Computed example of a mutant assay.
Amino acid sequence: MRPVTPSPGRRETARVHEVRRLRDMIRTTIQRDGYPGGLLPHESELMAGHGMSRATVREALAMLRADGLIERTQGVGTHVVTATVTTGLAEAHGAVRPTADGLLDRRMRPRVLDRTRIPVPGTVAERLGVPPGTPCLRLEYIGLLDEEPLLVATNYALYPEAERLGDSPFTTDWYALMATAGADFGQSEFVIGSELADPLTAGMLGLRPGAPLLAMEQVIYDPDGRPFDVAFIYTRSDRMRFVSRAVVAARPPGA
């Protein structure tokens, strides 16, 4: 049987997908800090290492440059221009001690936008299990990592925790604030999705409108299982990665 030669249209479609796949592989390596010193290999090395043509490599690099992840400098090469934070989900929940290079390693600094006592809104009241209008503290801030905006968060905290949270210095991350305030918690729940940045949120985070965001709703419970804080958090998806690992439970013999 004679081999089937792809039509020009199919060849172009296949090449476009090769560009996409190469972009994804390089981006992942960038995000896990896989290039020593932030310097990418030369085009010829990328071609040989991935079995790609020069045109494919250049198009993939152009896409990464358009995303603001790399820059190409004549005589220097292609280098990473942004840092991505990789954090375990357990750390993001505040359930384990911060890692040396994770989200909660005390490099974060808040820019407080609002710290006001208000009646809890109806939708939040439902999540907290209290009547609408119950007093709460609304604390909204932009999280800066190395002075660059990473996330914007709006927290609605009930009293008595809110009393301590409202009076305590807020200098790094939310869990450090709770620790300083003596607001103990026993559980943390996240619902994580994706949203497109509206113009206002995009402006706060230094993004173009329509850029993808990690959208997170968090509920924090006290040691007795009472929910006392609901947060709506929007994080730059190009600057944040979560790591989760699960161990498969051993099956009983004969199962």
Rank of each mutant, 00 (worst) to 15 (best):
198 D>M: 02
126 E>T: 15
75 G>V: 13
144 L>G: 06
36 P>C: 04
243 V>F: 13
4 V>Y: 07
153 A>V: 10
150 L>W: 04
77 G>T: 15
250 A>E: 13
20 R>K: 14
162 A>N: 04
176 A>K: 02
22 L>V: 06
228 F>V: 09
236 R>N: 01
241 R>W: 11
151 L>N: 02
126 E>D: 15
219 V>N: 00
139 L>N: 02
107 R>S: 05
195 E>L: 03
220 I>A: 01
136 C>W: 02
151 L>R: 00
111 R>V: 02
238 D>L: 10
249 A>G: 14
203 G>D: 06
237 S>G: 13
225 G>I: 07
236 R>D: 13
175 Y>V: 02
227 P>V: 11
76 V>Q: 14
162 A>L: 02
115 R>K: 10
253 P>S: 09
100 A>L: 12
245 R>G: 10
22 L>A: 06
247 V>K: 14
124 V>T: 15
144 L>K: 05
51 G>L: 11
9 G>T: 04
52 M>F: 04
38 G>V: 05
252 P>M: 09
213 L>W: 04
183 A>W: 00
10 R>G: 07
253 P>K: 08
153 A>F: 01
215 A>S: 06
255 A>G: 06
173 D>G: 03
185 F>K: 05
231 A>V: 12
119 P>C: 09
159 Y>Q: 03
204 M>F: 07
57 V>W: 02
155 N>P: 01
136 C>Y: 02
153 A>L: 06
69 L>E: 05
208 R>K: 12
32 R>S: 04
224 D>Y: 12
2 R>A: 05
212 P>S: 08
211 A>S: 10
103 L>A: 06
137 L>Q: 07
81 V>F: 15
223 P>V: 05
93 H>L: 15
187 Q>V: 00
227 P>Q: 07
31 Q>A: 14
100 A>V: 09
244 S>K: 15
229 D>L: 10
163 E>Q: 01
139 L>C: 09
58 R>P: 03
16 V>M: 13
185 F>E: 03
161 E>T: 06
150 L>D: 00
26 I>V: 14
187 Q>H: 07
128 L>M: 08
218 Q>H: 06
19 V>I: 12
132 P>T: 11
189 E>R: 09
13 T>K: 08
219 V>M: 09
233 I>L: 06
190 F>Q: 03
104 L>F: 15
205 L>C: 03
248 V>E: 14
90 A>L: 15
28 T>V: 05
108 M>F: 08
253 P>D: 14
215 A>W: 01
219 V>F: 07
67 D>A: 15
53 S>M: 08
137 L>M: 07
98 P>H: 13
157 A>L: 09
4 V>E: 10
131 P>Y: 14
125 A>Y: 07
94 G>A: 10
67 D>Q: 15
16 V>N: 09
144 L>E: 10
70 I>D: 00
36 P>V: 07
242 F>K: 04
178 M>A: 02
57 V>P: 01
52 M>S: 04
249 A>F: 08
66 A>H: 08
14 A>S: 12
176 A>G: 00
26 I>R: 03
202 A>Y: 08
174 W>H: 00
108 M>R: 13
197 A>G: 05
84 T>H: 04
214 L>W: 04
132 P>K: 02
206 G>Q: 01
17 H>M: 12
87 T>F: 13
116 T>F: 07
82 T>D: 01
149 P>W: 08
47 M>V: 09
145 L>Q: 04
77 G>N: 08
78 T>C: 13
195 E>V: 01
122 G>V: 15
199 P>V: 06
139 L>V: 09
29 T>H: 13
40 L>F: 05
